[in-house]
Amino acid sequence: MSKEWPLWEVFIRSQHGLAHKHVGSLHAPDADMALNNARDVYTRRNEGVSIWVVRAADIVASSPFDKAALFEPANSKVYRHPTFFPMPEEVKNL
């Protein structure tokens, strides 16, 4: 089955959601069926949702071994963090 039904990652934006969130994965023979299946498995058919499906093989992930090289330098340079600016009350979702 793994050969004929590759793995797909599913991203869903809920009705009032701002962005697509990864919700899980499933097997399907092609993109159309992956969409149909994602709808059945993950949305219970709520209206107004948007679904993205991506072949798991097409996703490139960062390696845990690169953690230090990729993320740690930022922590030693406080000026990289936008924490010194007072934000107006009206600005939400930041």
Binding site: M1, V41, R44
Partner: peptide, 11 residues
Amino acid sequence: PALEEDMALTN
């Protein structure tokens, strides 16, 4: 025949 089909049929 597959988990996904199973869910779809019962839906």
